[in-house]
Amino acid sequence: MKILAVDDDEVFLGVLLPTLDSLGKHDVTTAHSGPEALIKLGLTGEAFDCILLDIQMPGMSGVELCKRLRSMDVYRRTPIVMITAMTGKRFIDDAFSAGATDYITKPLDVVELKARIGMVERLLNERRVSSALERKFDQRSDVISIEVDFDKSFPIPGFDRGVDYLALENYLLMLGNKRMYSTPALGISVQNAGLFFRKTSAAGFVNMLGDVASAITDAVKSEQLMIAYAGAGNFVCVLPAHPTIDPADLELSICEGIEDFASFYAGDRLPLPHVNVGPLVRTSFFGLFNPTSILDHAVALAQARPVAKARRGWAAA
């Protein structure tokens, strides 16, 4: 794996490099600051597979660098693992919002690093599938042969507002019990996703998810939240402690956005995607013990709600 490691502490890099070596053959490039990293990113022929970023660096911080990387097409989806001391955990929220995939803490623990590198390798495999998918969409071919697993999360082409589902899970795990109890989640479910998966091609299914993602992006553009595609036609959001979002209004906005695509669906003799937004879900002391189970719960509630059609007078083809 081709890795860029950025840290202003030469001694830490002196620890990181042999530790990465001990975990397998990796081609590691180092940089001591954000600007140096940007230069090295520009000079490299083949893009890096993974980027390890120290959060607390003088000048350009790791969070700022992460944002810059995410604005570059080639690094839009590259796994970025932030490195922070325990004292830097307060910066982690910003790091995830800036697009970080995960984080590790200093002092470095080999077992933890091995787990993170393993996660990155799994993610890269998923990325290869997704990139192939996107290339085929870019070609705008009518005959697209792609394979998609209905139940699995994957990056939806063009859904720039979305983060990896894994990053969302990592974010919740980082919050710890105290903050997790005040963090709400909300599910958005495409009720007829299964029908699209069965009746159309994989490309048609991904196109439909792209339309829903576009409608969601428009509906939540001013909201502070993290959103990911969870698989099986479900999206899930993690919101700030005191959210301003109203699930019913959000559902209405998304449905209106989807109606913009109505002529395309009618032309293909397909129904419009039926989107339900679930209620806000919080972790309770007596209920959900696994930090990430709040995501499953939010999705389950969104799936369980009656179809919006009757309530909203929303027309499905």
Binding site: G14, V15, T19, D21, S22, L108, V110, V111, K114
Partner: peptide
Amino acid sequence: AASFDGSGGFAATELNAALEPA
């Protein structure tokens, strides 16, 4: 020695030696 799970190609002592320059 640095914490090490022992499952990689490196032995813990080898990693420890590799950390000497740092």
